[in-house]
């Protein structure tokens, strides 16, 4: 990529009707830039899971999407309850989602492992009572 690009999106906690909006915008941008289809697929899966986590768990958040020379960097930052035990949260099948969210087919404890499988790097920092920052790196 010759030029570096930056985009930002807001994500509202609890607003499931808009969940996936930021991911779909990111997908559109990558398609327009003719990024490799496999890279787009991995980015979309990782981003959707991170975006849904903000909707399902946090009060509000934002997505910072950077297209760099040989990688994509997508940062999901939220104000929310934070994650008490990140290692536990990474365990497939572990979820703290509400019953209501589970009935919609979310909260199966697959989100973080989907992110891990599809990202080249996944960095999670969280402070209980304040919020979480998830950084996804995808090499292009």
């Amino acid at each position: 990529m010759d030029q570096e690009l930056h985009y930002e999106y807001n994500v509202e906690g609890g607003d499931f009707s808009r969940a996936g909006y930021a991911s779909s915008q990111i997908k559109k941008i990558l398609k327009r830039l003719n990024i490799d289809a496999g890279v787009i697929k991995r980015t979309v899966v990782a981003c959707y899971e991170a975006e849904v986590n903000i909707v399902a768990h946090a009060y509000s958040g934002a997505v910072y999407f950077d297209i760099e020379s040989n990688r994509l960097k997508i940062v999901f930052r939220d104000e929310g309850p934070g994650i008490e035990d990140i290692e536990m949260a990474m365990t497939e099948g572990f979820s703290t989602a509400s019953e209501e969210v589970r009935e919609m087919g979310f909260g199966a404890g697959m989100g973080l492992s989907n992110m891990k499988k599809n990202a080249d790097q996944l960095n999670i920092e969280s402070e209980v009572g304040r919020g979480t920052r998830v950084e996804i790196i995808i090499n292009t």
Binding site: F16, S17, A19, G20, Y21, S24, V44, Y48, G105, F106
Partner: peptide, 15 residues
């Protein structure tokens, strides 16, 4: 699926 809410279409479209 038996899920009928809007997020089904978000997933269908993203995939």
């Amino acid at each position: 699926t038996l899920q009928t809410h809007k997020n089904v279409m978000a997933v269908a479209s993203l995939k």
